[in-house]
Design a protein around this nucleic acid. Structure first.
Length: 654
DNA sequence: CGCGGAGACCTTTTT
DNA sequence: GGTCTCCGCG
């Protein structure tokens, strides 16, 4: 039996025990939103609702995973049937079963951001638009298309509103977008947006499918609802249309995904859409000390458009948040590393300490310093594991086997061989894709004979490799498949191609281990595409320290929904936080302030704002940096200011 | 047509 | 630091 009485307060229990109908929970930071949600799921299961008829959605992998494990801890049984995860995960799971209804095949590949950009680029080239000087780059074009898709605003308006300089070629942009769409279908490819877009299309055009899922999900729960974009909100409405047992939880002050089309008006309009919705407010903050909470409240006050919420602290008095002025990056890294060590010595576990920052590259120097001092850390950002060249190379071979129409994968794999460049790869692709069975065509000797002399030996090896990989046994053992790719050529290729071969081999061993844990090639590929970091799923590898003994380095975005005893916020300087680039967007300052709010409310006990006085960015001359406006706009008495010299400042003084 | 080197350029946040 | 582009050589 789950102990709802002592684990939840009255407000939370009211939510958990609401029988049916739409529910809106407006809840501040640290008020136990996710906790309430997980308890409700546990209670539903406890009261006999089959886990297979519950849908639980969030936005980041991290949050989804922590939520699911909380539910598992509560009900202490296998949740195999429960549909939980990010919207993209759930969409993919459903689309795999119904792809044919949309003109796709079940084994479609998923393009990551880089792949999508390259593919879009080749679409632009084939239309001849790349020659136009004023035509947007593939990168910009992808942004335009994504924004249009995710907000539901028509392409023409997106260009007119946000990309005015490309207004003259709006028609060509539209044609390119259409061509991209057609080409993806042709190659059986979906990008991230398609997982949502096609999911919605499936529900709106296939009434039997729609019916099937609307009747399947008796309870639908969405966390961080303020981050939903138009498509996601529509999907949720469609799925909840039969039972109307939809519960959404959110906080408009924490809306930080507008760049992806998130629109917190979704949460505001929820009562209009569902007039019978029961509305709950959770306004007690259990997480932070009053000092931290007061500071966060004071900061978010500066945002004009928001719902007033009165967050009450229940925790006892603690330390005031500290502002630490530092000379430069190096000193900042030094300070943070030193303090982590000291805090650890006072008994705070490393996994209760987090360093948060606005952009991944902000953490570079700190990473090096932590390595130097031997402080174990877990980084949830930086270069994404699966987007590194060697990982993508190996994945390309797997994708070919899973989806032989995958143009992107074929071209990547082909170009790994000597004397095969863009032109030859294109010719080979044209040949094999014109055959009934591209994989068989590539396996036959015919392919090598169609290629310039210099490239022939390589293509012969490629055919042989494909033949040996294309077996039932390897298809069912993805781990073995990767090993086969490594031993039959890729290891050799790495010798020549990379100077830092060793760490890359280690990466691929990890990848093989990851793959060996699943039993189908398509599962592996789906997860690889939707996951950003391998440590999330594999857990600690034998060579690294246990997860409990690592400091967390994270972007603020990925920190959402999580909490730590001590939080260091680095680079609290104008231009870095708020980020200069983001300020230029409409509504940028408010969104940056919400980020600041999210970051500060992650801290339970101690909070440090670090800012540096000097910035020496690569190549540029050293310039002075002001402290972040988000610090300056606070009442000084809420903060503890540390004065230079910084060298002798120790944690014991606070 | 492929390849390697040199230099410019740009770097937000997530799936 | 990483990616993209341009150029000259084989």
């Amino acid at each position: 039996m789950i102990d709802y009485e002592t684990q939840l307060n009255a407000e939370q229990r009211a939510v958990v025990f609401t029988e049916s109908g739409p529910i809106l929970v407006i809840a501040g930071a640290g008020s136990g939103k996710t906790r309430t949600l997980t308890y409700r799921v546990a209670r539903l299961i406890e009261s006999g609702v089959p886990s297979g008829s519950i849908l639980l959605a969030t936005f980041t992998n991290k949050a989804a995973r922590s939520m699911l494990s909380q539910v598992e801890n509560l009900v202490k049984e296998d949740l195999g049937g429960l549909w939980g995860g990010t919207f993209h995960h759930i969409g993919n799971r459903i689309l795999r079963m119904h792809a044919t209804e949309l003109g796709y095949e079940r084994n479609y590949s998923i393009l990551d951001e880089g792949d999508a950009r390259h593919f879009l680029n080749s679409c632009i080239e084939s239309l001849g638009y790349s020659k136009f000087e004023e035509f947007p780059s593939a990168q910009v074009l992808k942004d335009i298309i994504s924004l249009s898709v995710n907000t539901g605003i028509i392409l023409h308006s997106v260009v007119a509103d946000k990309y005015r300089s490309f207004l003259d070629c709006t028609d060509d942009i539209y044609k390119a977008a259409l061509h991209y769409r057609v080409q993806k279908r042709e190659s059986n490819l979906m990008d991230f947006d398609d997982l949502l877009c096609n999911w919605r299309e499936l529900l709106t055009t296939q009434s039997e499918v729609m019916d099937q899922y609307a009747r399947k999900f008796r309870y639908i729960l969405v966390d961080e609802y303020q981050d939903t974009n138009t498509i996601q909100a529509e999907i949720v409405d469609l799925l909840a249309s039969h039972y109307r047992n939809l519960m959404v939880v959110g906080d408009d002050s924490q809306s930080i995904y507008s760049f992806r089309g998130a629109d917190f008006r979704n949460i505001i309009r929820f009562p209009e859409k569902y007039p019978d919705a029961q509305i709950f407010k959770l306004e007690t903050n259990y997480r932070s000390t009053p000092e931290i909470l007061h500071l966060a409240n004071m900061s978010i006050e500066n945002n004009k458009i928001q719902f007033r919420k009165e967050l009450r602290a229940v925790r006892k008095k603690g330390a005031r948040p500290v502002v630490v002025p530092l000379r430069d990056v190096m000193q900042q890294a030094d300070f943070v590393a030193q303090h982590i060590i000291e805090l650890h010595r006072t008994g705070i576990p490393l996994n209760e300490i987090a360093v948060l920052y606005r952009a991944h590259y902000h953490a570079m120097e700190l990473q090096m310093e932590l390595v130097r001092r031997g402080v174990p850390f877990e980084i949830r950002s930086g270069i994404r594991f699966f987007e590194q060249a060697h990982v993508k190379d190996v994945i390309a071979f797997m994708r070919i086997l899973a989806n032989p129409r995958d143009e992107v994968a074929w071209k990547r794999a082909l170009r790994l061989y000597p004397h095969v460049g863009a032109v030859t790869a294109q010719k080979i692709w044209e040949y094999i894709s014109s055959q009934d069975d591209p994989l068989a065509a590539a396996r036959s000797a015919e392919m090598a004979s169609r290629v310039p002399k210099g490239a022939q030996p390589g293509m012969t090896r490629f055919s042989a490799l494909l033949s040996s990989l294309d077996t039932e046994i390897l298809r069912e053992n993805p781990g073995e498949l990767i090993n086969a790719i490594l031993t039959q050529g890729y290891r050799e290729h790495m010798e020549k191609a990379f100077s830092d071969r060793l760490s890359r081999v280690e990466d691929l061993n990890q990848l093989a281990y990851f793959a060996s844990q699943r039993d189908s090639l398509m599962d592996v590929l789906s997860e690889l595409a939707l996951l950003t970091n391998i440590t999330e799923e594999t857990g600690p590898s034998p060579h690294t320290v246990a997860a409990e003994e690592r400091v967390i380095l994270s972007s603020i975005h990925q920190a959402k929904g999580l909490e730590w005893s001590v939080v260091f916020m680095i680079w609290c300087s104008e231009g870095k936080m708020p980020l200069g680039r983001a300020l230029r967007e409409p509504g940028g300052e408010d969104e940056e302030r919400r980020l600041f709010y999210v970051a500060t409310t992650r801290a339970k006990d101690r909070l440090y704002f670090c800012h540096t006085m000097w910035d020496h960015e690569r190549g540029m001359r050293t310039r002075a940096l002001a402290p972040s406006r988000f610090i300056n706009e606070l009442t000084p008495s809420t903060l503890q200011q540390v004065d230079p010299p910084f060298e002798h400042w120790s944690v014991n003084e606070s």
